[in-house]
Design a protein around this nucleic acid. Structure first.
Length: 269
DNA sequence: AAATTCTCCTGAAGGC
DNA sequence: TGCCTTCAGGAGAATT
């Protein structure tokens, strides 16, 4: 399921293919995604892609005075294909250029295609987003300050995009294991030292996942169709009952906020 | 205000 | 073999 690493991998994969290219056509085969694809998205035709950026799990294509904003939901992928490639099942949206096209496939349709005149942070869905975890903005002191007085679990806190962006279920679990912190621990109870360890764990986890091409559990593929390999390196996610790679204890599974949580009962406190 | 629950969707997996 | 049920998850909306 695309989290920050998968979106970043996608951004890097498509950037060279579309930056500087002019949109030749927009093809909408299934507008019913998380939100209906807005009709004005067709006005992109004739505009040039100036840059491909990422904000949290959103991909932002700067097209002159307009932004095309894409979200991969949990089963989305974006590929670069030759113009005219026949669409397959769940291929909902194409952004066509003269010599290639971007194609969005999303079986579960939790993704979205958004459009806004002007900068992307003017969009209501992006205006309230929290800190980019790989930026210098996220450090122990900042995390410590943000979590003061918060009674929610640290895992829930990390997964809330108003606090930190891009960290979903998989990478929250993995980061907390690296930091030796129990996912259920109250966010406000973490010391400054543990917050510092946690920010380092988050950055290392995300970077390692990016280096491995992201995680491909079911649907995710890179823009060239290849899968990522980070799922083979999970330390706790989906490893219930298996031995902890650090201490050998049996990894536990719990449910927190209707989400599967995995942790080592010995390494994480 | 903050925290929790519900919701969208499809395909895989499990049960009988 | 095949049908039916359950589950997974990003994140906004609704609810407490």
């Amino acid at each position: 399921m695309p989290e920050l690493p998968e979106v970043e991998i996608t951004r890097r994969g498509i950037s060279a293919h579309v930056t500087g290219r002019t949109v030749a056509a927009v093809e909408v085969r299934e507008p019913r995604l998380r939100w209906r694809i807005p009709e004005p998205v067709r006005e992109l035709v004739g505009r040039k892609v100036r840059a491909v950026r990422r904000r949290g799990k959103y991909l932002v294509l700067d097209c002159d005075d307009v932004c095309l904003i894409l979200h991969l939901g949990m089963s989305g992928s974006l590929r670069v294909l030759p113009v005219g490639t026949p669409p397959q099942k769940h291929d909902h949206f194409d952004l066509v250029f003269h010599d290639c096209m971007l194609r969005l496939r999303d079986p579960r349709r939790f993704g979205s295609v958004l459009w806004i005149q002007g900068p992307e942070d003017g969009h209501p869905l992006l205006a309230q987003l929290g800190i980019e975890p790989l930026s210098d903005e996220l450090d122990g002191a900042r995390l410590h300050a943000l979590t003061r007085g918060r009674r929610t679990s640290i895992k829930g806190f990390l997964m809330d995009g108003r606090n930190v962006v891009g960290v979903g279920n998989i990478y929250a679990n993995e980061s907390l294991f690296r930091a030796g912190i129990r996912p259920s621990r109250r966010a406000g109870s973490l010391s400054l030292e543990r917050c510092t360890n946690l920010t380092r764990a988050i950055k290392r986890t995300l970077q390692a996942a990016i280096s491995a091409g992201g995680s491909s559990l079911r649907d995710f593929v890179r823009s060239d169709g290849r899968p990522g390999y980070f799922q083979n390196r999970y330390r706790v996610y989906d490893r219930a009952g298996k031995p902890c790679r650090r201490c050998g204890a049996s990894i536990r599974r719990a449910v927190q906020g209707q989400r599967a949580t995995f942790y080592c009962p010995a390494c994480q406190r």
